[in-house]
Write a protein that binds this DNA or RNA. Structure first.
Lengths: 247, 247
DNA sequence: CGCTATCTTGAGTAGCGTCAAGTCATGTGG
DNA sequence: CCACATGACTTGACGCTACTCAAGATAGCG
């Protein structure tokens, strides 16, 4: 069915699993690619990489070699400031594409770290550009994904710039919920893969504030939070929290 | 020298000025395009649009028709929340590309408004995708620009998530300064095109805070601020303000 | 089983927001 | 060209949200 990999290093030890047979196909880079073209996309993604929890996928300053599609696991990206300040810029899960920050200067501009044992598909960037010149639907999907990242960032700005602590955390929980749901997992009950400090960094708050707000949500019956385990009891109330009229 | 426009509506009333003879060439979409290819890029950008101060370039929800390169003037983009909250997501000046938020869903996700009389070049998006399949250097430049926007957004997140009011405003002024410099204008003396309220919205602060911090900067001899006119007297001090070690 | 990282909760505080009053600039129509 | 209206800005007083510091509880890992 599949032609063998034509070039590139042979990836001993990793079973090659094609995009065409990947369950994340419709969430990931190959979304919207038709069957005939899929064979070429399969050849584009020619290597898998396993990461242990805590391991870096790439660091700020590293040259751009590939983009990465998350196959399984959970990751975070952190932007660093010269003075050592660090801010979580995003949490990433299966089907999401990483590394687009590096295209502008050919160097990564953030650190990306696995928050649990994870696996990513390497997509050599030069080859991706070449193939997307030949396959309009691949080109369109790449543009859509980059644009989606820009839109996501606008959402984070809105959150950081104009929401209070409770609203930020409610938005965060609903966003996680929605993404788990889209991947076929429960949107009402899940385990957080990140610490309170990482959530705080992402939301522009301190870890104590995260802890306090979670406790308050629990007292008010909106969620059950037991350490990393979260159960959302009243998603509507969380939504109301976010969109309540000001003034 | 130039071949006539082959297709598309004739743009009566606007003098066609080609990218190839545009002074912003090296800041804008055609950066890095070689002379032979430039002719085709000239045909891509086939319409200019003038905007009066306060006029919308596009609104959230509008279908994606084109990307826009700012030829002259100054603009802002605002993200809107259902409850009416609005946040300035960016200020834009000559040579910058607008509209990339719309690629993911074929609809714009923010409002973009002229803050002074401005002029933009329309770049029909379908044609841009087509041409960038044929011209690798155009494709690369488009990718670089989208990636640059992602990196810029990360910077804003860092600012909103982990800086104090004084640091945010210092970073804002230095950023403006640097962008004016890159365009051949004075980086030490310029007029703000936006109100205190818009600056505040962008920086996640209230207009009174902007006003107070500007006054404090002036008292400390870092700047001279007289209404919209800003003169930066001590850029180094502003830089120190941003990167001072915490803890 | 003990160590360490993570989390919770409390008390006190600082920074920014809110409200309010007044000044200053811009532009419009008489 | 001036008077006036309107929007933009400044400054002060006060309040609240989230931060800081601290102590103790809990979970996870070796």
């Amino acid at each position: 069915m599949k032609t063998p990999v034509p070039t590139g290093p042979v990836d001993v030890g990793h079973l090659r699993i094609a995009c065409s047979s990947c369950s994340l196909r419709e969430l990931c880079l190959p979304a919207g690619i038709d069957t005939r073209e899929m064979e070429r996309v399969d050849r584009l993604v020619n290597r898998r990489r396993k990461l242990k929890r805590g391991e870096h996928l790439y660091r700020a300053g590293a040259p751009l070699a590939a983009l990465y599609a998350i196959r399984s696991g959970f990751m975070k990206s952190c932007v660093l400031h010269d003075d050592g300040r660090e801010q979580v810029a995003g949490f990433h899960m299966m089907g999401e594409l990483l590394g687009m920050d590096a295209i502008s200067s050919s160097r990564h501009m953030c650190d990306t770290v696995a928050l649990e044992d994870s696996e990513v598909c390497e997509i050599p960037f030069g080859y991706l550009e070449q193939l997307s010149r030949e396959l309009p639907s691949l080109q369109q999907q790449l543009h859509r994904i980059m644009s989606r990242e820009i839109v996501r960032d606008y959402g984070v700005m809105l959150l950081l710039g104009s929401m209070k602590a409770e609203e930020r955390l409610a938005a965060f929980l609903l966003n996680l919920s929605q993404r788990f749901t889209a991947r076929g997992y429960s949107g009402t009950e899940f385990n957080l893969r990140m610490t309170r400090e990482e959530i705080g960094s992402y939301l522009g708050l301190k870890l104590e504030t995260i802890s306090r707000v979670l406790s308050r949500f629990q007292q008010d019956g909106l969620i059950v939070a037991r350490h990393k385990h979260i159960r959302i009891r009243d998603p509507e109330a969380l939504r109301r929290l976010i969109s309540q009229q000001r003034q």
